[in-house]
Amino acid sequence: MNEQRKDILDMLAEGRITVVEAERLIVALERNQPPTAPGPDARPKGTAKYLRVVVDAVEDGEPARVNVRVPLQLLRAGVRLAALIPPQALGKVNAELNKSGMPFDLTQLKPEQLEALVDHLDEMTVEVDQPDATVRVFCE
């Protein structure tokens, strides 16, 4: 809540202005406010084209930077590869995952679910801040 709006509500609470006057003041206040600048959140959903991974780090005293841009279409095409994996190969992978303590059944993972996952990447932002490294994963 901004300061001016708070002042109007305070005046209303103290009985210095009526409800109608408070409403008029708030409407006038909203009319006079400049439009907010469009930020990353202002982007309509589903319009992201790329997945970006940006890593800034310091290694051996030298600055290191990794900047990867992957089209989301490429991810969508990639998840279709999962449908091509032969069932016997999935069985072997499941067995190895179980051995490693990850009881995960890859046969239950459907391409449609993976595509839905890629579709919702649009709304995802991951930021990791470490003293010597920063990682950002987002869509644009």
Binding site: K49, Y50, E59, E62, P63, A64, R65, V66, N67, V68, R69, V70, P71, Q73, L74, R76, A77, G78, R80, L81, A83, L84, P86, A89
Partner: peptide, 29 residues
């Protein structure tokens, strides 16, 4: 491996078609 050849080539073509726009930039020092 009993995988549909048409599906495999279709998926491969989709991947190749989706490659434009890919950019990998790595810098150290």
């Amino acid at each position: 491996h009993r995988v549909s050849v048409v599906r495999a080539f279709g998926t491969g073509w989709r991947i190749v078609s989706a490659l434009p726009g890919t950019r990998v930039d790595i810098a150290q020092g």
